[in-house]
Design a protein around this nucleic acid. Structure first.
Lengths: 232, 232, 232, 232
DNA sequence: GATGAATGAGTGTTCATTCAT
DNA sequence: AATGAATGAACACTCATTCAT
């Protein structure tokens, strides 16, 4: 409960309060009409509950209540619980890719720096927030919701894979790396991200020692990879 | 928690690979089946079903039927479905480490070869069998069974971590690697194992493209790491 | 229970046959639609939907949408879905009898011809239109709306019964039929009408073979009856 | 509430008490094991509730409670509410046809007597009992359960139709009737049965006057038909 | 010990109705 | 008058667990 675990815990508290605050905001009125704001409020509530309790273990009624609306209202904006899950994935992961793709097209430093920046950015923007729990959710409940897994594959895994592949290819094209199998190499990069994810969401709650400092681990992992790819 | 549990644990490796056979066995000799064999048959059936269908999606009735007994009988040996889960994990996990520890103490080749051998051995003995599904199960259901996660941490994660750390230290001591932070490095190795695990048990069913060749990936991952650690 | 209700009742025959037209009408002139026309449009839409989809299966929102208004507006005119049901039945039933009574008082042919004409007319004017569905609705939902059934009995069943009884009595008085129990005989005539009704609205959709030609059946039924009643 | 209506009412009371008695029988013990008796008890309860409250309006829990068991037990014997409906149809209508077919093959009197016997038998064995309500149920809820309608068509309508057709053909073959279209004629016979059915289950509750004496009506109806078919 | 009939708590989704705007 | 966002009651079906036999 110290080191990075504490760090994460602090983050979660903040995130959770963000949600709680928003529901306090409109707890004054009943039947308040907030058509524009509802979907976002519901998505926030759903992310928090899904990540902290699991998808199946979360009742739609709890999501609705947490967003300050009734069960029926949720179905006004999302056709089903699974649809809500997809929307959570879209809002918290998939929708970031356009910006990320652009960001890396405009990146001007060396490719090794770019890789480190990518990994650390992921941690700061996603890994350290509730959004990282989505990946664990998808893995955990994959068996029961194949459609969601397919969605996640198309909207998150592939775009992410492609993004990393382009970065590695840039390194080869610029002569920073010797040519190698970028396909396999991407898996090695992604494995570190998945590792941090699973550590945080599956083990951190129970495992106290062997604590992992995510940022240090990611930097180290990239450095190792980069050394392996460098031209000699 | 003694007697049959020990018995089962001893035969767990065999059971894991002969689930089908064992169920054939007792369909032939109806009354020859010894009472002491029941729990083992139930654990085998449970492992197979939990891994292939998921924990929640597996009905206790299916486990009982698959073991050739009635639903009521299962509850004679395991007080609840959760208890059965714990027993499955206990029976199929920890006991490999003594053998592995000894095996690597006697290893005589180079440390890079040793690392590659470790990874490929894991794949051949565990990763490619149902046993690898346990890790995924633990991750998926971690929220609901913190006690199990702790057990998994002590009996599997730490011994594995220590084993890898000793191997890396051997490489440094023998002058094959330049000195580095072995703690962080181990995570980078384990991340590859976890990656293969999750890929196989969470995504393989739904994700068609970007298919992963586990053995090639593991070899490549080790090579990359090794290059990074080598003395220059 | 006055004003627009009376208005609607007057135009019910027209409405029944021009549901589509009337909805086209108000899509052209957006604001020209008079408020007084609303209830009629709602009743038309309700008749069509109730008959074609069933009462329970019809959503009030669909009725409203079909009439070109919002859900809330429907409840401005009808206090509940049940109230709408009653209004539909009231608006589409009773008013045919004065005309029919007069028509048959002026009929100059033989009584057997008159009976055949009555049955075939019913088919052509009612049976083959949506209006016939009301009878099925009343039968189906009788349990839930006893008040409506009573209304239907007084306004439809009895006038119809009396009309047929007078026709049969005419046949006896004119010496075309031997004297018989006209009360019972009327039931035999009406049974054919009900039969066609139920066939059309309850079974036709699912039952393929044994198809029924309503007009042939009705003619045949009357001929049989008439032969039984004829003087020898 | 007098005449035949009273007669029917008496019948229903008897029927209802049959059901009630059976549930009293095993109300002493909890968790009584009555595997053989359960389906029959559930079918009786279901018939009574479906007929008196309607299919959709009846909750499976009510059926179970009325049979003295829990909700779960019902699903041990019937896979769904719709399946229960079909079983009710089978047990109370469809299963009678073998006996009826045989009975009429062995009938030795004249065909007109046979027809009268058939109609009166129907009234005494089916029409006057709760079983007659099934037909009304199927008609009423046809829209929502097409599969049930199809089942009813195959298991009840067609066998009944064929039975009547064979009887009429027997009359023609024996020279009692002049040749005629038996297909159309059957509809005229069945219409009387349907009429009694709908009268009893849709109108009787609300309509007091114009009371119908079912047995007299059916006899009269048959006599009329027969006169029309006789050879001259 | 073994059985399997019986239990009953738990939940996503629909839709008639309300009411703030 | 008209809207349409919000409500919440209602319900079939599953399955881990119990217990009479």
């Amino acid at each position: 409960m110290n080191g990075w675990v504490g760090y994460i815990t602090n983050q979660s508290v903040i995130n959770m309060q963000t949600t709680t605050l928003s529901s306090d905001t409109h707890s004054g009125h009943k039947r308040e009409r907030r058509k524009e704001a509802r979907p976002g409020e519901l998505l926030d509530a759903a992310l928090s509950l899904f990540v902290n309790k699991g998808f199946s273990a979360t009742k739609v009624e709890d999501v609705a209540a947490s967003a300050g609306v009734s069960k029926g209202t949720l179905f006004l904006y999302f056709s089903s619980k699974e649809d809500l899950f997809k929307a959570v994935i879209r809002a918290n992961l998939a929708d970031h890719f356009p910006a990320w793709n652009q960001e890396f097209e405009e990146f001007e430093g060396s490719t090794p720096d770019m890789l480190e920046y990518a990994m650390v950015s992921w941690w700061q923007r996603i890994g350290s927030t509730d959004a990282s729990g989505i990946t664990k959710l998808v893995m955990s409940e994959a068996h029961n919701f194949p459609e969601v897994v397919e969605f996640y594959d198309q909207e998150v895994i592939r775009p992410g894979h492609e993004l990393f592949k382009r970065i590695l290819q840039r390194g080869i094209d610029r002569g920073e790396f010797a040519p190698f199998d970028t396909e396999l190499a991407v898996h090695s990069l992604v494995s570190a991200i998945l590792y941090v994810n699973m550590w945080k969401h599956s083990l951190a709650c129970s495992v106290s020692k062997n604590a992992l400092n995510p940022e240090a681990f990611l930097r180290n992992h990239v450095h190792l990879m980069v050394q392996g790819w460098r031209q000699r």
